[in-house]
Design a protein around this nucleic acid. Structure first.
Lengths: 180, 180
DNA sequence: CCTTGCCTATATCGGTCCTATATATACGCG
DNA sequence: CGCGTATATATAGGACCGATATAGGCAAGG
């Protein structure tokens, strides 16, 4: 599933510029499970326009670069529907946080504590962000995805909060085991 | 955090060939939050060996390609510890499943049902796999990571199982709302 | 019996994608 | 008034994945 498909999906929800599409991946409904950079969005939009899946109206602005507003065409809607029914690849999590945690026993406790605290703060931010979207009117598909994100983030957050002592105080743990 | 660091981490847990490192990413302790391909593992191992972070003993085999067994050196251990204390980037989930679910309302119900069923099966497999590792002796860091994966997978699985009707029978949902 | 497919094992190519940067301007803050 | 941040597009360079090539072993099944 390439960036072109993601852009088609984003524009299916309303006209937007490349910049606005990027923001959807950063803080919008997509933010918790997708990612795309300018370096892939802009070429994809150009290609989709050439193929007839998008139209582009260049809106001149005073003393700013032209805003290129893209809209999905009927052909683009068809293309999206086709692409959505292609086989998909499995979910993939990339977590440098968990990778470092594997070696918690060999790292300074301060490093581990900072990492855990930062990750908790990140999760709280993301959770607040996704909960705010429950105010907006959503299709059942969108609401399913939103709540999925909410549930998974809550589970992650609760787990870290309740188990961080296991990697922050490994000595204590071992001492307790010896006493038992 | 590049593939080289991931390889150093893998080899910190024991000597291995490139092929075995790949298997760790596919079904080992790493499988639920990391990924790396042959195309990046083999060059990384060569580079790390040149830098002195790894040694490589080529074990000749009858009628097979030579097995190149890599071991981490003291210098490699130092390098890993340094790299683990560099700033990390945030967790990132890539889910084509959730992307397609956003448009569940516009897709044939059969497609949606198949997608949900497949995703549930995938999650059950991964969960079985990660639960099996509770038998092995693990450091507290490793056990923290294992249980984190277990908890998040269970939350995902339960959510999909309990809420799939919202995207499988959107008509029913709407009808119920009208009745209310 | 013999073909088909999967497992071990290394390696590389093509193409996709991210990171960092360049270019311009506006706006709010101290 | 400078600084950081936001708007807005674009590209070069490099990291990385997916597919493929090579090559033999083993097991299942027709």
């Amino acid at each position: 599933m390439d960036v072109g498909t993601l852009c088609l999906g984003a524009l299916e929800m309303g006209d937007a510029t490349g910049y606005e599409i990027k923001k959807m991946f950063e803080s919008g409904l997509f933010s918790h499970f997708l990612d795309a950079s300018f370096g892939s969005i802009y070429p994809a939009l150009t290609k989709l326009t050439d193929e007839g899946s998008l139209t582009c109206t260049s809106q001149q602005q005073e003393r700013r670069p032209d805003k290129k507003i893209y809209s999905i065409t009927p052909a683009g809607r068809e293309a999206l529907k086709r692409r959505l029914q292609q086989p998909i690849s499995g979910d993939r999590l990339k977590s440098e946080f968990l990778f470092v945690m594997l070696f918690a026993d060999a790292l300074p406790q301060e490093t581990v504590t900072t990492l855990l605290t930062n990750r908790l703060a990140e999760l709280r931010d993301e959770l607040t962000n996704i909960q705010a979207k429950s105010e907006e009117p959503l299709t059942s598909g969108q609401e399913f995805v939103r709540r999925y994100g909410e549930v998974v983030m809550e589970a992650s957050l609760n787990f870290i909060r309740d188990n961080r002592h296991l990697v922050e105080n490994p000595m204590t743990t071992r001492a307790l085991e010896n006493v038992r």
